[in-house]
Design a protein around this nucleic acid. Structure first.
Length: 463
RNA sequence: GGCUGGGUAGCAAAGUGGUUAUGCUGCGGAUUGCAAAUCCGUCGACGGCGGUUCGAUUCCGCCCUCAGCCUCCA
């Protein structure tokens, strides 16, 4: 039985889909005005693993995964103005760039990636419903605000109390609001800003309403899992609940999942602190699968410290696992049974405990290495299980040689040159000319190429 | 000030009221012309102080300390 830590109750709960034939997952995605950073990569990878595992448990057809794109907001407008381009040009460009990063990280495409600007009518309808029922009010300046005091359960997700929020020194005082904790549903447009027609005048949606509208539209009023980064817990997700439940009269989401932050030097990585690394930058130095391995090697709710040392270790991890798979014809149909398989699923069922699941992969790799010279059939079974299980984590799906010999970019010695030198070395080795043999090996090593001699011959990999 | 979540061996990272996490690293051995890879063995842990218990790293309390949210942020 799958257990998931539900942030609504702050404890692990047995996951029971509303309808096992139609398991529904919604994740808050990117605001597209810049390249994705490693924090975004974490959300993508974490929920990609959740999605893959749900597909394993319930069947691919039975799972619907929605991840939205925020393509209109203040930051987008600001950046478009700075660049002297339309906000549409800007967002289209960064949606395309986002897809490049996703593909590199082996992120399975969600079933739908709704955009705020494509759901304007649904957004307006939900705001209208809230206004009609008295849950929202139109301010003097044309903005529409949600009246937080009318929603009794406000604070249930974030554990906040209205009194504390009002007393908080950091809540900005906005003259247009009746209450500082109220939040905007519809922002009236200033001259020159992108805008849409509404019953309250030209304007654009507030940030939170798009997710309430798009998620209920795509998945129904009540669905299973809603996820996102921990920084979205408050106010974004709290407000989504308030909007959706007030508008539909139904419970909105059963399980709330939030992944932890990526840190740099023990400090949160974020746009506002300007200490972020883009996925693009990191992929210049590390293979995308290494980045994925780095993310999976920590539990999704723990903080993840970004450092070269930790990325290097992730690379070692993948090298070890791929080395075990090297030279073995895996059988994609092998049965998933046995001690290690059970442990893997036990780990995944325990709130997606990927570090524990990775430990199992090492045990299987060890089984492969132990058996490969004495019992190839057993080695094939272990290797095949290893690869199948790794697929649920989105790793180890390339040919081992491809990973082990892959370099980043065109710099350095070519594969042909390497093969040539290896052949030269084999020739002198026939005459036991060890000095020359070692010289060639050292020459290659200086260029980051590691040679491995075995009875079958010489293999190589890039360090 | 209010609210969260952490502090595990050199590093990374799970987990548990009493039994090996795991990976990298270190040390010893096998293998190898020497290496690399692999295998075998091994050193090394649970922030501090109390409490509950036959027994606590694991439960409770207090303290120290770190990070986060309370404003845009994945």
């Amino acid at each position: 039985m799958l257990q998931i830590h539900n942030n609504l109750s702050r404890q692990k709960e047995t996951f029971q889909p509303i309808d096992p034939k139609n398991v529904r997952l919604y994740v808050c995605g990117m605001t597209v005005y810049d390249y994705c950073h490693i924090g975004h990569a974490r959300v993508m990878v974490v929920f990609d693993v959740v999605y893959r595992y749900l597909c394993h448990l319930y069947g691919k057809e039975a799972v619907t995964y929605i991840r939205n794109v925020t393509d209109i907001d203040d930051k987008i407008i600001k950046r478009a103005n700075e660049n002297g381009e339309s906000f549409v040009t800007l967002t289209e460009r960064f949606i395309a760039e986002m897809k490049v990063d996703e593909a590199a990280l082996s992120i399975l495409p969600p079933d739908q990636e709704p955009r705020a600007t494509h759901y304007m009518q649904e957004i307006l309808d939900m705001i209208q419903t809230l206004v009609d029922s008295g849950m929202a009010y139109v301010a003097d300046n044309g903005d529409v605000y949600y009246d937080v005091s009318k929603f009794e359960r406000y604070g249930q997700l974030s554990g906040k109390h209205l009194e504390d929020l009002r007393a908080g020194e950091r809540v900005a005082v906005d003259e247009a609001k009746d209450d500082p904790v109220d939040f905007v549903l519809w922002k009236s447009a200033k001259p020159g800003e992108p805008s849409w027609q509404s019953p309250w005048g030209e304007g654009r949606p507030g940030w939170h309403i798009e997710c309430s509208a798009m998620s209920t539209c795509c998945l129904g009023n009540h669905f299973d899992i809603h996820g996102g980064g921990l920084d979205l817990q408050f106010p974004h997700h709290e407000n989504e609940i308030a909007q959706a439940e007030a508008a539909t009269g139904e419970k909105f989401v059963n399980v709330w999942m939030h992944n932890g932050f990526v840190r740099i030097n023990e400090e949160k990585m974020s746009k506002s602190l300007d200490n972020f690394f883009t996925i693009r930058e990191v992929l210049k130095v590390y293979d995308a699968e290494v980045v994925r391995g780095f993310i999976i090697n920590s539990h999704y709710r723990s903080p993840l410290n970004y450092s070269d040392g930790n990325l290097d270790e992730a690379k070692n991890v993948l090298t070890t696992l791929y080395t075990a798979l090297r030279g073995i014809d895996v059988n994609p149909d092998v049965e998933l049974t046995g001690e290690w398989v059970d442990k893997f699923f036990a780990a995944m069922n325990d709130d997606f405990n990927t570090p524990a699941a990775m430990a199992v992969l090492f045990e299987l790799a060890s089984e492969v290495n132990k058996a490969r010279n004495s019992d190839m059939a057993a080695a094939i079974v272990s290797a095949s299980q290893l690869k199948q299980l790794a697929d649920m984590l989105g790793i180890l799906q390339r040919e081992p040689e491809v990973f082990l010999q892959s370099g980043l970019g065109g710099e350095g010695i070519s594969n042909e040159q390497i093969e040539q030198l290896i052949q030269q070395r084999l020739d002198v080795r026939k005459n036991k000319e060890w000095a020359e043999s070692d010289r060639i090996r050292d020459e290659l090593k200086a260029q980051g190429i590691i040679l491995e001699d075995s009875v079958e011959g010489t293999t190589w990999r890039r360090d």
